Amino acid sequence: MEEHNKWTDAQEDLLDMDPVPQTPVFEMGTDTRTEGDAATLTVTPVGLQERRGSNVSLTLDMCTPGCTEPYGYGAQLSPRDQSAQEYLRQGTHTLTPAMLHTRAMDDQSLQAEFYETPMNFVDPKEYNYPGLVRKNRYKTILPNTHSRVILNSQDEDDFLTTYINANYLKGYGDEERAYIATQGPTVNTVGDFWRMVWQERSPIIVMITNLEEKNEKCAEYWPEDTVTHEGIEITVVSVTQEDDYSLRVFTLKCGGEERSLRQYWYTSWPDQKTPDKAPPLLELVQEVERAREEAPPSSGPIIVHCSAGIGRTGCFIATSILCKQLRTEGVVDILRTTCQLRLDRGGMIQTCEQYQFVHHVLSLYEKQVSHTAEE
């Protein structure tokens, strides 16, 4: 079973094999396969029942026109995207505790469910703005337009000054803007990142990546002691090292106002050698939950990022929502939550291993909850 307990980031690593990830060539009717088989495949429209995780469907998902919410003047979705949207709006599979424990061990069923669920990636053509390349860590991972975070700017007409690769996501019970999922800041976007933190009144940042894993995954966007970005003064108050994460507490000052910010940096993820990462993730989810409850009532969304802001970020946010659902309703709907997240940011929970992992984590959580109840 060990294979599937790792909270892996296979796809993110795949995107990262060379320092400047190449954009898939959408125009070609072939599938450049990454593993072994050099045979080319002709791209035909993929039915929902077929493997959506294959490179073919990934390429299709990312290049079909209009695969985000319709916006602008009556943008038409293709029938394929229409069905993908409907699938994401309707997908559901409620699991009782007993079903959850069984299903967490059923790799084949989980694979089938994962590959049937549309990714809902954005067509890069939706963002045809010169200079935007500098603002994205990966060319093909872009924020879905209808839910993207728009930065306040002196010049609202200058698209680049309003842009950040980040989306608002709903929380448990459709709570609006409970989270923001974003890419790991790059050298070019550190200022934008801090503008977002301040604008959104975020009390907490959850960072789930090392600064480097084979190559850069995230810029070190915080200071050793103090720094000013975009008129926001950021000062480190304390650094605490826990087993699986470090906690930094910052003071932010801007325009005479002062706020506190906590950054949970989960560092034990990429070390793939331990058999099971579920307990430390659960602990982090619960720790962040507690911190959120203690934050001022005026606080905004929790910001979560990894490198691309979809894989590990999706796992963390889904787990957080699902733990609440389990406590409140006594059941979980992991498929529903995944669909909900992908409607607002394509690709959330990026690999089948991650999807299985979320099931493992919830299964463990349910056992903890029922065990505590018995005592």
Rank of each mutant, 00 (worst) to 15 (best):
I150V: 14
G91P: 05
V122K: 00
Y127C: 08
N152Q: 11
H93Q: 14
S78C: 05
P130G: 13
D123M: 01
Y138I: 07
S147C: 09
L110A: 08
Y138N: 07
Y127T: 09
V149R: 01
R134L: 00
F114G: 05
S83A: 13
T92N: 12
A112D: 13
N144I: 00
S83Y: 03
Y138Q: 08
V122P: 00
Q108R: 12
T102V: 15
Y129E: 15
F114Q: 03
P143E: 03
R148D: 01
V133K: 15
D123S: 03
D81C: 12
F121I: 00
N136L: 06
Y129C: 12
A112V: 15
I150A: 04
R103V: 10
G91K: 06
L151I: 09
T96A: 15
I150F: 05
R137P: 03
Q82T: 12
N128M: 11
T145I: 05
Q90F: 07
L110H: 01
R103D: 13
S78P: 05
Q76P: 02
Y115N: 11
E126M: 05
M105A: 15
G131S: 14
N152I: 01
P143M: 04
Y138C: 07
E86D: 06
Y138T: 08
G131E: 14
Q90G: 09
Q111L: 12
T140A: 04
A104V: 10
L100C: 09
N144Q: 05
H93C: 12
E86C: 10
L100F: 08
S109L: 11
T94L: 14
T102A: 15
R134H: 09
Q85C: 12
Q90L: 13
Q90I: 13
D106S: 05
S83C: 03
E126A: 06
T94V: 15
D81Q: 12
Q85F: 11
I141N: 00
T92S: 15
H146P: 00
A112H: 11
E126T: 02
E113K: 08
F121T: 00
E86Y: 09
R134D: 11
A104C: 10
T117E: 02
A98S: 14
V149N: 03
L132K: 07
R134I: 00
L88A: 02
L151W: 06
R103W: 14
D81P: 00
Y87P: 00
L142P: 00
L95P: 07
V133A: 13
E86W: 12
N144A: 05
T140D: 02
S147Y: 08
R80N: 03
H146K: 05
P124M: 07
A104W: 10
L95T: 05
P97I: 10
P124F: 03
S147H: 07
H146T: 04
A112Y: 08
G131R: 14
T145L: 03
P118C: 10
N128W: 10
R137Q: 02
L95H: 05
D106P: 02
